[in-house]
Design a protein around this nucleic acid. Structure first.
Lengths: 213, 213, 213, 213
DNA sequence: GATGAATGAGCGTTCATTCAT
DNA sequence: GATGAATGAACGCTCATTCAT
């Protein structure tokens, strides 16, 4: 794949062979899928290439044909996650309506989609250290961009008076996404609450904490 | 790191030479300190025993004289964190006053103390997978206990009508502690906000989201 | 080494790449040969993997490609010995003639073949303790089977009156095989007696001690 | 202790502190006893100094006060065994009577005393490789001396015509002691035969194989 | 006499990666 | 495209021994 994020850029050199996600071969898909599951379950460093190729039902040689390295597998997983996040945000941000309503939708959606891809979320934070610095920078930049977009909505509401203005929008974003990113540590599909219910609760709490004093 | 408490005890058996922190030798202290820093910086698996002993200025043999294994070092770090959390929780739980005020103090304190020990906080969640199952269970039990204590305060306010009752206290706890636990991912002492300011903001957001509708 | 036979089978699961000796690669052969010599000369525990791979002229990685562990090398050596014993026993058991003659041939042969594989014989008893319990059980069972077959011949002679009957056949077997198994401790090819001469002497002594009183 | 064997000699330099066996301190005795048991059970290399001192209930420092090294413990065990063997042989060889009777007594006694000290016997052959070459030479020399004495009796009987003369006495000695030395591999006190019974059987078999043709 | 902290060389093993086929 | 044998550096850990107290 080429453009890891919507802006592409520095991460490009990590990918090869594949120019777009949709052109992935079955072998690649199976490797990414196996790697995602194993990385989430045991961690990147505790997962060996042998385990991945065995789980994917391919040979080592095949893996190294499609991916430059074990790190490259991780890059691809991050790239996929970032791509998907960006896609969702842009789709939702483009919708109209009052800012409170838009923010609620987005907040709820980010919870639901995080839960729908808990393995990705687990890997995302647990493996940041294992990422090569260049890629890590890309990831952080992309995340920052996401936060900024989100923060923009809060600032919009603050300007219109719909939201309180006595708190920096930034701290509210960090507060909310901290909660979201930690879902992987406690949310279990078998629990009492559905993803949608958690999303609604989280969005409610966010919006309620934004009400003017 | 925060939000985890300990009644001591069950984790003690992971330490062999040492049963109380004050009896630690200089070598042990230096090893724990070096390990904490390195684990937080590079992750448990990416930190080699050689790196630790070199950073601590001791030999491998000395390390293995005081610690059973690399894992044991991690156990000790967790045990220290749990011990400290117990201490703080017990101190704050003893205070009186209206529940909103107590909750605000505790919420703010948990942020401040998390920031004061960011390395511990980083390790706490990033290395849970690497912990042996027995110790992991202990850690989770302590964390649950801490959450329950915190939830108890919310439920108290819900009963008295000070807090909204249309949200489960549990989800509010998860929301708040998610935010707290993610401080290590973004908070930098060199940033604009002091630990106390972040603590106050977070506590405000928590309390505001609890106001009755 | 001698006095141990095998019906193949149960020991096979210790080998992974190889199920039949003829399919062994050159690397495997060289490793087994070097290991046999070194184990016999210095003992299993005093022989390091580094020494083995150096003597075999391969790298450590290559060794671990073909053998699961240092133990696995030992398993293979035992398995090879057991296989060879099976072969010899079956060949000799098929011959006819008077029991005294058959017993003499077998006794003599067991000495000759033990001497022909003194390294194997040395390892066989010296390293039994180092063998994993499952394999050890297999080895003991094979040895018992061999002894039983041998004892059967003595009992046959006792029934026909060719051999004395005032001694348990079992103690005679233990007496004889003790002597055989200790050949590795004293026999040197450079000595005065050929393997065949020792075999004949031992067989004579066995048969003479079996003459009716 | 000083004189490892009846002739003293080259092994002397391995011993220190103790000038005669009877002057051994309790600590020394406990260490030798624990080491003998552990070496027999797990082998010399698989037994650590820590295990020995723990089993003996003394500290490492104490052990190194009384013994130069772990090897020294092994030397002492060998020395004790050799001393005892020599003592018994000389006592029995000095007795009068026909050579066949004397040989039978000695043969029987060597079996009984081997069984009475099976741990020593186990160590004797299993740990020969671990012994430093100088000590190993001493052990072999002493054993040769023992065999020569034993062989002398056979040769005496051959000269008088009481024993067959068509077999070298040497091969008969090797045959017999092979059987004796292997007792540790199969004899169990819980088995059917008492030590004395095995001793008599073995002595009978030896004498019977010596009868003139 | 006796302690136990400290040493440091060496151990068996793993594993991401390469490359001839 | 795909294989799997082979590499070699690094890993966590053990342990006989020393020595200041």
């Amino acid at each position: 794949m080429t453009s890891v994020t919507s802006r592409g850029g520095s991460a490009d050199r990590y990918a090869h062979h594949v120019s777009a996600p949709e052109s992935r071969s079955d072998v690649q898909r199976r490797l990414l899928s196996a790697a995602t599951r194993l990385f989430a379950e045991h961690g990147f460093d505790r997962t060996s290439v042998s385990q991945i190729v065995e789980a994917a039902g391919v040979t080592k040689g095949a893996m190294y044909h499609y991916f430059r390295s074990k790190d490259d597998l991780l890059y691809e997983i991050y790239a996929r996650v970032l791509r998907e996040q960006t896609r969702r945000l842009e789709a939702l941000a483009a919708s109209g309506g009052p800012v409170a309503k838009r923010l609620h939708s987005i907040a709820s959606d980010v919870v639901v989609s995080t839960i729908a891809n808990l393995d990705d979320a687990t890997i995302f934070f647990q493996s940041l250290h294992q990422l090569d610095p260049v890629m890590r920078k890309t990831v952080r930049a992309e995340r920052r961009r996401y936060h900024e977009r989100f923060r923009g909505l809060i600032e919009e509401g603050q300007r219109t008076g719909e939201f309180r203005a006595d708190k920096p929008a930034e701290i509210i974003v960090d507060f909310f996404f901290g909660a979201v990113h930690h879902l992987a540590y406690w949310y279990r599909p078998s629990g009492e609450l559905s993803a949608q219910q958690v999303g609604d609760h989280f969005a409610d709490l966010l919006l309620d904490s934004l009400r003017p004093r």
